[in-house]
Design a protein around this nucleic acid. Structure first.
Ligand SMILES: [Mn+2]
Ligand SMILES: [Mn+2]
Ligand SMILES: [Zn+2]
Ligand SMILES: [Zn+2]
Lengths: 138, 138
DNA sequence: TCAATACTTTAGAGCCGTTCTAAAGAGAGA
DNA sequence: TCTCTCTTTAGAACGGCTCTAAAGTATTGA
């Protein structure tokens, strides 16, 4: 019996992003990308890893989140100063922001019609349009 | 000669907001609201005050910015985690965010047509819709 | 006019999310 | 297996912001 290697979709994703498929990256990716799309903070993910008996340092969680973002596997969202959320849904979409408890919910791109945009000054190029619908419960 | 009081527009604004017109609040308001609309951070304003020989503590700058925001004289904007901007333009409008240097520029409300919005879940009420057009120079 | 009162300011400590450092560890090509 | 490069890590450091509690100031109303 020779050494076996499993090429899961996650490992392929990492390879494609030129990121070595380390134990930590694989575990974090599995935690984040299983199930539904999420909006997760670094501290939340670190706690989830700990709970799942995955030993990862907080620095590695931050490194991984940023590397994944750079690779297009995540999207970083800032709605409140002081904490970043990372969105596992990288498709074109928008958000409800619940001011009461600070959580985010997706709004499909076709539910918000931005039918006209200005031309950026100085020849700048639009990299993304974020629509945040701030809502209050009660 | 009796004690004289000048009721400038700024002092009236403060009185209307139930804020005592202290030396610090008046000076900060004068710095912020003279001239064009701006997107200013607490540290920027504190430095401006210092430069203008206005002695104010950083805590007071933060207190004042938050009180003004609460009173509707300012609007707080978060585009990057870690630093808040306060907008002296409280009318309905949107923003270009220059990813290179992190500065904001106004986009008039009528230059962005958001022609359709989803209904918030759970009977939540929309308090504001923020459109941030992220742009890159080159 | 002048206490009495309530509000405001302040220095400095503390907080918290995030980034840095530099040394140890692990993956991958040869 | 060897070597190189990339990765992880603990812990210190950082930066924006908030808190504390004590001193200062505006306002009220007698
Ligand atoms: Mn970041
Ligand atoms: Mn704030
Ligand atoms: Zn989302
Ligand atoms: Zn603005």
């Amino acid at each position: 019996m020779t050494t076996e290697k499993r090429y899961t979709p996650i490992i392929s994703k990492l390879r494609d992003a030129n990121l070595r498929p380390t134990r930590q990256r694989i575990a974090l990716a599995e935690l984040m990308f299983r199930g539904e799309d999420r909006h997760i903070s670094a501290e939340m993910l670190h706690k989830e890893a700990t709970t799942a008996r995955v030993s990862v340092s907080l620095a590695t969680v931050y490194n991984t989140l940023h590397q994944f973002t750079q690779a297009g596997l995540l999207r970083e969202i800032a709605v409140e100063a002081g904490r970043s959320y990372f969105d596992t849904n990288t498709s074109n979409h928008h958000h409800f922001y619940f001011e009461n408890d600070g959580h985010l919910e997706d709004v499909h791109a076709d539910e918000v019609v931005v039918s006209s945009l200005p031309t950026p000054p100085g020849g700048a190029k639009i990299s993304r349009v974020d629509v945040v619908i701030r809502v209050r419960q009660d």
